[in-house]
Design a protein around this nucleic acid. Structure first.
Lengths: 87, 87
DNA sequence: TCCTTATGTTTATTATAATACACAAATATA
DNA sequence: TATATTTGTGTATTATAATAAACATAAGGA
C-alpha cells in the first residue's frame, strides 16, 4: 500500500529543489530574486513550500534549465505516455 | 539549433493537457470545477494558458493522478538525475 | 570578538488570481 | 431546425500572491 502524495508534499519538494539548485549555483535567495526580477520574499516563501503562481515557478524552472524537460514531459503525457510508460 | 521553450508555451501546453485529460474523462469545465471546488472561470483561464496558482495546477494534476509522477520527477531532479539522464 | 552575509519573519501596500454573476457564441443532440 | 449543453467573454468583488522595507537571528569569516 503506497501512501498518496499530497499537494503540500509536492510544494515542499518544489521548494527543496529550488533551494538545492540555487545553492549548487552558489546563489543567495537575494541573488536568485534579482536574477528573476522577483522579490526575495517570493523566493523565501516558495522555498518553504508556500503557494505561488505558475509564472513564479516557471521563471525559477527556466533559470535552472528545466523548462525544456518539463515541456517534453507534458507533451508525453498528452500522448498518454506517462513517464513510467517510457521504460 | 533548438529553440528555447518559453514560459508562455509551457502554460499553453499545461492548459492543453488539462483539456485533453478532462475530455478523456468526459467532463465539462463545469464538472471539473465542481469536482475540485474551483470556479469554472479558473479552469477556463488555465486551459487557455493564463497564469494560475500552484494550488490550482496541483489540484488538477492530482485529479488526473499525476501527482505521484510529478513528485518522483522532482525527487529525481534533486539527485541531479534529470529525466533524460535516466535513459 | 567583531563584522558581514544569508535567512527567517513582520507589517503595510499593490497587483492579480479566484470567485460569482450574467450573457453571447459555438457545439452538440433530439 | 429547435433545444440543450458547453465554451468563451465581460464586469465587479474578494482573496491572496507579490512587493517593499525593516529588523532579528543566526552562521561564517576576518
Amino acid at each position: 500500500m503506497i501512501d498518496a502524495v499530497t499537494i503540500k508534499e509536492v510544494k515542499l519538494q518544489l521548494g527543496e529543489l529550488c533551494k538545492q539548485k540555487r545553492q549548487s549555483y552558489d546563489m543567495s535567495q537575494q541573488d536568485l530574486a534579482e536574477a528573476l526580477k522577483l522579490s526575495r520574499y517570493t523566493i523565501q516563501k516558495f522555498e518553504n513550500g508556500k503557494n505561488a503562481t505558475l509564472d513564479t515557478v516557471l521563471k525559477i524552472a527556466n533559470h535552472f534549465d528545466l523548462l525544456g524537460n518539463l515541456y517534453q514531459a507534458l507533451k508525453d503525457l498528452e500522448q498518454n505516455n506517462d513517464i513510467n510508460s517510457l521504460y
